[in-house]
């Protein structure tokens, strides 16, 4: 028995060969936990600062923007990070709705949908920020 190399592997993370389904599973948790903590605090803080008046709101927005009101590097990191987390979590959540019905467990289908979730999250984030930053980008590059 001990010399048989064809036995099932014990379930240690280091031993499993990584696949898209495992990547999308942990990304779902990372994205969800990140939004839960960072997104939740920013959302509540943003609303509270607005409820506490204009100077408090300006103080809060000052953390994420420069003088002119344009987004700063911290705002970009939080903004891009949270929107990527949102799109990835959203797409994988839709994938989970399908899995909940008992569909999509065939090896090839499962792999295909997991890869599409990861790519879809990145593409949606890139498209959104291209849209948001289109005007400043055009101005930066000297276009019309």
């Amino acid at each position: 028995m001990a010399s048989d190399g064809n036995r099932p592997l014990s379930p240690h993370l280091q031993i499993w060969k990584w696949g898209p389904h495992m990547l999308v599973s942990i990304l779902h948790r990372v994205a969800g936990s990140g939004m839960a903590v960072v997104g939740g605090l920013l959302f509540a803080g943003w609303l509270l600062s607005a409820a506490m008046g204009e100077s408090n709101y300006a103080c809060f927005m000052g953390l994420l923007t420069v003088e002119s009101g344009a987004i700063n590097i911290i705002g970009l990191v939080f903004g891009i990070g949270l929107t990527w987390a949102f799109f990835t979590h959203l797409l994988n959540g839709l994938r989970h709705f399908v899995l909940d019905t008992g569909a999509g467990y065939e090896l090839q289908a499962n792999k295909r949908w997991a890869i599409l979730v990861v790519i879809g999250g990145i593409v949606a984030t890139a498209a959104l920020w291209l849209y948001i930053l289109w005007t400043p980008l055009v101005m930066l590059t000297g276009g019309a």
Binding site: G40, L41, F43, A44, L47, L48, A50, A51
Partner: peptide
């Protein structure tokens, strides 16, 4: 707490 703070802030505004 997060829900309470957010909802209070929204109502106040």
């Amino acid at each position: 707490g997060g829900a309470a703070v957010s909802i209070f802030a929204i109502l106040r505004i």
